[in-house]
Simulated assay, not measured.
Amino acid sequence: MIRFKTLSFAMPLVALASVVFAQKSLPVTVLKSATENKVDISIGGRPFTSFLYPDSLEKPVLYPLRTASGTVVTRSFPLESRAGDPTDHPHHIGLWFNFENLNGLDFWNNSYAIPANKKNMYGWVRTDRILETKSGDKGILTYHANWTNQQKDVILEETTRYEFSGDDNQRIIDRFTTLKANKDAAFNDAKDGLLGIRLAHELQMPNSEDTKIAGQVNLASGNYVTSAGKTGDDAWSTRAIWCKVFGKMGTDSVSISIIDHPKNVNYPTFWHARGYGLFAANPLGEKVFTNGKSEKMLHLKKGESVTFRYRIVVNNGKQTISTTQLNELAGSFAKK
């Protein structure tokens, strides 16, 4: 049995109207590299993202994420360099999944920047095998990983299934992650977790520190909105079924939305959505997000497991995805 204590909270899902303007889905190709720890995902013949799991990274990531038109919506650093992208938080890479405090080990903040004499305080998510790759109307990628300490002692076994789909203006990632305890495992309430994305600079919220690059204003134009109606900085630490970041990238209106699932622990999740470009869903940071009024402690006994489900939606076009469309996508995802 999974034991946890939580704040009682209920949020009914809005009645959903059918969206009649859905576009035709495009074929998805999932191709495992023969020479690298990498799986490439293309939709409609265009690159979408890659699953990267080299030994040089402290966790597996999807990097980069692109819109249907090919615009990269994730920050380049530290794997590449793109004008305007900030170079803080080297552990923020593409899209990832881990946590700040599991049995006292920090999985979230681990990176090449941690000094060797402090590495023992950090955990590592080590992908050891790809279980399935499948191309078709929907692309499938399933992998197995171990959450370990620096001595490679396994705390959790992770099995994650990705489902990729898309059309001419949209890309969807459905992620289903099951964590099975190899020994007693305690997720201690912490701010940094669980599903994270580091945004390209254009999707950061504008602030007075924006600089000039190559003689032009660095156009950060991002903003957040949640299903509960919170916007901008007010989205941080609040609960909602989904959260959307949106802004201008070139002439395109671009958005990334994360949708929570009713079967997830502590639904609806808290949003760790920061103006500087960190966009994360964290149901296990309740103590921080409620200023100590309540907390979330998730404990698994050896052999027990928990599953987390998230939908990530990337859109581009003349205008960003609407609330009605996101509610429709949340409704369909809730049935999976």
Rank of each mutant, 00 (worst) to 15 (best):
S81Q: 12
K119N: 00
T307S: 13
S76I: 02
R198K: 13
R161Q: 15
N315Q: 10
Q216N: 13
D233H: 15
L141C: 12
S135A: 10
E202R: 11
T67Q: 06
I41E: 01
K296A: 09
L329C: 01
G70Q: 10
E286D: 11
E58G: 06
F99D: 02
I321N: 01
L131N: 14
F187D: 05
S50C: 07
A145T: 08
G292A: 06
A181R: 06
E286K: 05
G285H: 02
K183C: 06
G247E: 03
L194I: 12
Q151V: 02
A83D: 14
V154D: 03
D137W: 00
D137P: 01
F107E: 06
I256V: 15
V245N: 07
K212L: 12
I197F: 05
N327E: 12
R66G: 02
N169V: 11
S294D: 12
P90L: 07
D85W: 06
I172N: 00
S332P: 00
N103K: 09
N218G: 02
F77H: 15
I93E: 08
H261F: 05
L105E: 01
N98V: 03
A68R: 01
F333M: 00
G215Y: 08
N282H: 06
L95I: 04
N98E: 10
I259L: 15
D174T: 00
G136R: 01
P268F: 04
W147A: 11
I140E: 00
E163M: 06
A280P: 02
K118P: 01
D167A: 00
D192E: 15
L62F: 15
I93V: 15
V225K: 02
E132P: 01
D153Y: 14
T74M: 07
L7Y: 14
N266W: 10
N223E: 14
E295A: 14
N223Q: 12
R239I: 10
T307Y: 07
T307K: 07
G94T: 09
K336M: 11
P283H: 09
G292S: 10
R46F: 03
R75I: 11
I173P: 02
A235R: 05
K191T: 14
R82Q: 11
A15N: 11
K244N: 08
I130Y: 10
Y267E: 05
L179I: 07
P64H: 06
V14S: 11
N218F: 02
V72S: 07
K301T: 07
E209C: 01
H299D: 13
D184W: 00
G222R: 07
